[in-house]
Design a protein around this nucleic acid. Structure first.
Lengths: 264, 264
DNA sequence: CGTCAGGTTGAGGATGATCAACGAATGTGG
DNA sequence: CCACATTCGTTGATCATCCTCAACCTGACG
């Protein structure tokens, strides 16, 4: 925890989603996989089946809790959440942001006692995928299994990129990097415009994601504004010079995309 | 790069392994998977088949180079290597150590232009696994596909744990954490004793893994020695008080193990 | 109108980086 | 076999980055 009390308490309060919403809701995951491979009708149906049983959780709710045993993963279909670990003395490291289409609980829930927690930032719609069902999918639809493996690799790459950022970049570069990562990830699910978006995180959360203190994040944001690289009006952030900011942050969004899985 | 010149240059120099060695060589990967599920004879055979074509690479050789396009992964069967990214100005972040049984090139090689490099520390024996063959395995042996997905999740967890370490721990804690991680990982492949092992990394490499400078790593090691937590004789490191060091580093090796995959 | 979460700012201090040596061990070529 | 280069470890002085602490401000909301 950076410094302030977390405000991320509360227990999962699961409200069943209205059926009328469901159609549009489980599309994020399918859309994401469809970027990796061309899906057959049968495969789409299987993914549909996989995502039975949506639920809604309100903002600021812990939907995965470290230390418990889980028998499956979640798929996030709407809203955003953060994955994090809290050390015993309260220090917190945020591992990353989960956006629609992401697996929630990966990789923490693969362990006997779940390693990481996940809390919603806004109201989310998610669905539970028991391992049993996931493994059945690997059996019945090997191409989907392969795609899910590939997806896990991409999640993994988010962690490693984040690690480089935190391990070897200055505070200024880290903040720049983080804002750019948010831009491209939010763009990929239609939550950001060409060069702007509504910041889903407070400065406290950014601090915990980047291994910095709250005041220092604030100062770096001010500096980025003074350098005419970003602008903030309320909670809406605009990146004024994406190429310049990318150069500072050593960020290359293009490298992190991969269109189709080869040989599949 | 922490400061010194890297000494990790050179191009892959692939020497075919003698057939007589092969039998024992591809066991590391099989052993690792066997910890996740009970392998049938057919599955063992398939894994054997997957690992055709071993090669040997000498110490300090780059066996995966960032920026290139790869059509598969490698499986490391003997020796150790490091995965890392070098920024344009030379700063380097080491993402982790690869030990026998690990996928080399994951997750970097899943991208159009490989994101990370891998260099050997000692002479290694590895084999190339084209995606084509890997995906065929997902098709023919779904349980193995599932296990490989699971394995990818565990690799992922190494990255996230490392991220917590670098993001939210002091230099002293980071070094302590790293030494413990090395202990349990090397133990898992029989390269470490009860509480000691030969350090496979120089202080420069530790610095680049932990986001620290070389002199500071040196000072932290000295401090750990002064605190009677570790001892170093030559390159052999002994952890004098594993529980105490674990408490300092907030390290819980047990949490990172998972015996069998549930519901498989 | 009071409370609270979140943002902003500054002063002072600590952690860890940088720079610059030096030492020990190993290997290499003459 | 020795001179030399090279790599790695070690140490100290100085300095910068970033943290900590402590305010204060704003807007939202009851």
């Amino acid at each position: 925890m950076a410094t302030r009390q977390q405000g991320l308490k509360g227990h999962p309060l699961h409200t069943p989603a209205r059926q009328s919403d469901v159609d549009s809701l489980n599309s994020a995951f399918v859309t994401k996989l469809a970027r990796f491979l061309d899906l057959t009708a049968a495969e789409r149906a299987a993914l549909w089946e996989l995502q039975a049983g949506h639920f809604i959780a309100p903002a600021r709710t812990e939907i995965v809790a470290a230390g418990y045993t889980y028998r499956g993963l979640l798929i996030l279909n709407k809203g955003t959440a953060i994955r994090y670990k809290v050390l015993r003395d309260g220090r917190r490291q945020i591992l990353g942001l989960s956006i629609p289409g992401d697996f929630v609980g990966f990789p923490g829930c693969l362990f006997e006692k779940c390693l990481y927690s996940t809390s919603t930032l806004e109201q989310v719609v998610a669905c539970s995928v028991p391992f049993e069902k996931l493994f059945a999918l690997f059996r019945e639809h090997p191409r989907l299994g392969t795609a899910i493996f590939w997806l896990a690799g991409h999640e993994s790459a988010h962690f490693t990129e984040h690690l480089v950022c935190v391990g070897r970049q200055s505070a200024y570069e880290r903040v720049a990097y983080f804002l750019l990562e948010l831009l491209v990830r939010l763009q990929s699910v239609g939550l950001a415009g060409e060069d702007s978006y509504v910041l889903p995180l407070t400065q406290e959360l950014m601090a915990d994601a980047l291994g910095l203190s709250i005041p220092h994040v604030n100062k770096m944001l001010r500096e980025l504004r003074a350098d005419h690289l970003i602008a903030l009006s309320g909670t809406r952030l605009t990146i004024l010079d994406v190429p310049a900011l990318s150069a500072i942050a050593a960020f290359n969004g293009r490298n992190l995309m991969r269109q189709k899985i080869p040989n599949l």
